[in-house]
Nucleic acid binder design. Structure first.
Lengths: 252, 252
DNA sequence: CTGATTAATTTGTCTATACATAATAGTCAA
DNA sequence: TTGACTATTATGTATAGACAAATTAATCAG
């Protein structure tokens, strides 16, 4: 009897979809340790009977759990609770403007230097491309509540982003502008600790040789590097924070 | 006619499931810029006609794209290509043992100090719990190819992990042991740059006041803090790297 | 006992249909 | 013109059934 969704609903109000109910229920059993890693999850037809729903609904819940890495599924064998995963985390490296505004602080930036030039060997190395073409080199200082927040050194590949040549960066800083204008397909981050040199110390208003957090980012569009950027934060004032729960993106 | 899956297959071999084919096709159109952000994605019944399949199959593809954040779906309005997202990244902070072994280096660790004690005020602060109960405080030094790699300072909440009291940590270091034994539901990371004090400098074999990368992690099981750990790496030798593509977990 | 074949089981994918839900567009009366 | 009601449309959820694919279990010939 292929009727509506409320065939088997005793509860008059159902705020949560059936498949999510099942998903969370199973997740709770795994998280609580009731189902230990390696143990077998009931087969779809068993759960179908338990939850009194169709196999597709159970399948949707189980597939989501599998995608989240909480269970491993194999044909004929069945589904099993996944082994504890290595400690991974999802880090949110936000756009600087958004980051400062999110903290409820006043945002401002200034372009320190701006130079359009033929790509040097160093530029090519940092962009990881074969030399040739032109780049736009920028230095930017970002302020939060008028306090120096981070220094940005950026190279933009004008072969990919020719529009940058004409852009004065009056409203949005280069990073935010790029995000709005150019679609990117790939990014790489490198996070490092290092000592402030004279320039950084002056720009950030911190003592020379104090600890800094440096984040380098390369952004690609297909095979072509769009931009390389290095963000230098005062180490004692800035920190990257992230929260994570296993099977994280499960509960939206 | 509810027949098999090959009702409408002209291609004799179909290595990829239909819904993935559709998903990737749509994703390619978005990535290539053919469909610009904000533009409308054809409705399910249109795609159903285009790809000559059922609406459920199209729905599966579109739902996945929506979950990955590539499109936004609204009832009655339709589906739209999402606006460029803020630069987020997924960072892999691995288990130390796994991290070193992954680099093909020889792993070794030594317990520097070990103390079981009643929870001090500082301990409670760092574990973010109300004082009371006992903790196990550990200092560990990890080596990669016999070179000091990282110093670990850890507090373990014995109320949650009583088994740690009896554990000698001969085979696995505390972090790896915990991952194997205790299920966790939540974690928080804080990444900071700071200067090496005398102790860290000595333990890591680096000059005092050189830059260090400090990663602090709190791990919870429900509301209870399991452990707090601080990992101090030499800043010039260690770096966190991560790759990311928008709509990342799409292509498994 | 071994190796190949066959059966059974479980997940993976797909279809066709049905009704729910949300939001827009249109209609009509005050 | 405004506000309430109604129709329309697109997505969201759910069902029952079907066949595919993979892998384990059982069977049987040698």
């Amino acid at each position: 009897m292929a009727k509506g969704k409320f065939d088997s609903v005793s509860d008059p109000v159902s705020p949560l979809p059936r498949y999510l109910e099942i998903q969370r229920d199973l997740q709770a059993r795994i998280a609580s340790g009731q189902w230990v890693p390696g143990s077998r999850v009931p087969a779809e037809h068993e759960l179908q009977a338990q939850y009194h729903c169709s196999r597709m609904t159970v399948n949707k819940a189980l597939s989501a759990l599998a995608k989240a890495g909480l269970i491993i599924r194999r044909r004929r064998s069945g589904s099993f609770v996944a082994m504890p995963r290595s400690q991974e985390t999802i880090l949110n490296i936000q756009d600087i403007k958004a980051e400062i505004l999110a903290k409820g602080k006043v945002y401002r930036f200034e372009i320190l230097t701006r130079q359009e030039r033929a790509m040097t060997t160093d530029d090519a190395l940092q962009l990881r491309v074969t030399p040739g073409g032109r780049v736009l080199a920028l230095s930017v200082r970002h302020f939060a509540n008028e306090h120096p927040f981070v220094v940005e050194d950026r190279l933009m590949n004008l072969a990919i982003v020719p529009a940058a040549r004409e852009e004065p960066f009056l409203v949005s800083p280069p990073g935010t502008w790029l995000l709005d204008v150019v679609p990117w397909t790939n990014a790489e981050h490198v996070i490092q600790a290092e000592l402030a040199d004279q320039r950084i110390a002056t720009l950030l208003g911190i003592p020379k040789k104090s600890a800094c957090l440096a984040i380098e980012r390369r952004t690609w569009q297909g095979d072509a590097t769009i931009t390389w950027v290095r963000l230098t934060y005062p180490g004692d004032r800035h920190q990257l924070t992230s929260h994570f729960r296993p099977g994280g993106p499960l509960i939206p």
